[in-house]
Amino acid sequence: MAPNPAAVTVRPWMRNFLADVLQRLWCQRYCMYGISLLRIGYGVSWLMIAFTNYRDRHYLWGPDGSYSYELFRQSARFPNYSLYQLSSDRLFFELVYHMGIIVTLLFIFGTFGRSISLLQLVFVASLNYRNPIILDGGDNIAFLVLFWLVLADSSAISTRLKRRTKPCSTPCIPVITLLHNVAITAIITQLVLLYFLSGLYKAQGSPWYEGTALYYIFQALEFSWPPLTDALRDSLIFGLLASYVTIFFQISVTVGLLRPDTCKQVLDTACTQVASSAEHRSEEPDACFEIVGSNTMWSSAFVIDAHKKQAAAAVANDGRSRVVNTVAQLARRLVVESTAAS
């Protein structure tokens, strides 16, 4: 029998390494609680916007609103790109708008899994494209995150609350797991790009590096909040510090997001709050680690098979980052396996 080519051409350590990476990508869903929290937070925010602007819905999105139906039809890129494009009837608008609110409620509760996420994407995209002139950066990133959220499994919290079982305690479907992990990676990458590019643009602007940017921004009534901003506007120290901290934070958050330690500090709090609401908290010390794990996966795609709890304990004990541990383990393993091979 002819030998398996993979077994001949791939060295054992490489083979193990690839097997490990594949195992992690296809068989282990990361960030289950984090993504679930994201879904709930997103839904609540969207619901609040829908209610806050409920009285003005016709003016903002309606057929006779500030972005007229004709203008909307002319600017639409594809046929039926938005549900509101199907009809200019006022009743139809009401129907779609209120259906969107119902879908958002179901989305918050995690009913119907990915199907409801897809519906939420359709309704959010429909409303966004109905009046693009009222969108801002927040709407922009929210939509992009929602796009990837559709691929992710965000049912952890609702599953936990309903069945009192760990998410994915039954065998997961590998393709779905891969899609979930790809979605997590894409969301993190998108956030990194947002902060990094925004910081880069600010670093190019003279008001930002001269420390006067906030002074000018606070003069615009739409971005002022008297009397707080009036007091801050005239402070030289605050203006300079705030400008530099903003630029520094936005550019360096990229590094922060890639470091699991940083994320652990931020996400542990949220995770603990969620976990404490569940009855079997003591059974699931790994839940927080799963959230951190998503970032670990992204930052160090070449993670070796460090046991979760051992690695967590190592991080807690000696204060070194998990990346350092991982690299050290990789090095040790390479040495051991190359010695054995020779």
Partner: peptide, 8 residues
Amino acid sequence: LFAPEPVD
């Protein structure tokens, strides 16, 4: 996002 020239 408010850069390079902020809204003023």
